[in-house]
């Protein structure tokens, strides 16, 4: 039981007549990367917003580290070490990398002045940790000068700094080129090596296959497939399964 960081049981959520989620069971283990896959509108974002406390479910239960929680909120999720990397425009582009990493949680000392050296060094360590090997960038670099993949890296570094145990990435590679996506996959591997868990959302199976340990496929608000990596021989097989599901509405479990 306690092996799961998050467990959702029988979660349903409707927006008016749209059943975004119907009776969903979902869980994330320790140091596990879950690939959450599904078409646009399948309910992926709704699912993770329930985990990060942005949306309350209509029914169902949320367990955090084996304990049932009530009145789940963004603040409570943060305190529980759940950080979300939102897909678009998550950074203040004209600011430095360091300022973005500490945005809203500045490292301050005397009278609220920022401990600039500490922030610089911490940001620098974090960037190297997460695989920013390029000497071109320092914590003082302006975010607008980074590539899309590097920006995602900064957003992930920000999540990592505050000792997240679960990092949720909502379609982090959608707007990126292949080489840039590679960088993000690198970041996700880093997350795992640190013993953290992740939920990696995508509607592109090829983007998820390599980094995820387990795949959960959502279709029209229902979990239609859940498989460990070793149960799925290849990404192509996963694509075939998904096409079957789309065509027949069949469930594989």
């Amino acid at each position: 039981m306690g092996d799961y960081i998050v467990e959702l049981r029988n979660i349903s959520k409707a927006f008016g007549k749209t059943h975004a989620l119907t009776d969903v069971n979902f869980r994330v283990g320790r140091a596990e990367v879950v690939g959450l896959i599904g078409d646009n509108g399948a309910g992926k974002s709704t699912l993770i917003k329930i985990i990060s406390g942005v949306i309350a479910p209509d029914s169902g239960e949320i367990y955090i580290r084996g304990k049932k929680v009530d009145n789940w909120s963004v603040a409570a999720a943060r305190r529980a070490g759940i950080e979300t990397v939102y897909q678009d425009k998550a950074l203040a582009e004209q600011q430095t990398i360091a300022r973005n990493i500490f945005m809203g949680r500045e490292l301050t000392g005397f009278l609220g002045f920022i401990r600039g050296k500490d922030a610089y060094n911490e940001a620098n360590r974090l960037m190297r940790d997460i695989g920013f090997t390029s000497k071109v960038f320092s914590p003082d670099s302006i975010v607008a000068t980074l590539s899309g993949g590097e920006k995602q890296g900064v957003a992930i570094a920000r999540a990592l700094y505050f000792d997240a145990t679960l990092i949720i990435l909502d379609e982090p590679t959608t707007a990126l080129s292949l080489t840039e996506s590679e960088k993000v996959f690198g970041f996700v591997r880093q997350i795992k090596q640190r013993g953290c868990s992740a939920i990696f959302i995508s509607h592109n199976i090829y983007h998820v296959y390599d980094v995820a340990d387990r795949f959960v496929i959502l279709d029209r608000g229902r979990v239609v497939m859940s498989a460990e990596k070793h149960e799925v021989p290849s990404a192509d097989q996963l694509v075939k399964d998904l096409q079957d599901i789309a065509r027949t509405g069949r469930r594989i479990e």
Partner: peptide, 18 residues
């Protein structure tokens, strides 16, 4: 050098993110 200035800039830069 102060938290206030940093937050002012973040707010003016990207208020959703802030």
């Amino acid at each position: 050098y102060h938290k206030f200035g940093a937050q002012v800039c973040c707010v003016g830069d990207n208020q959703e993110s802030a």
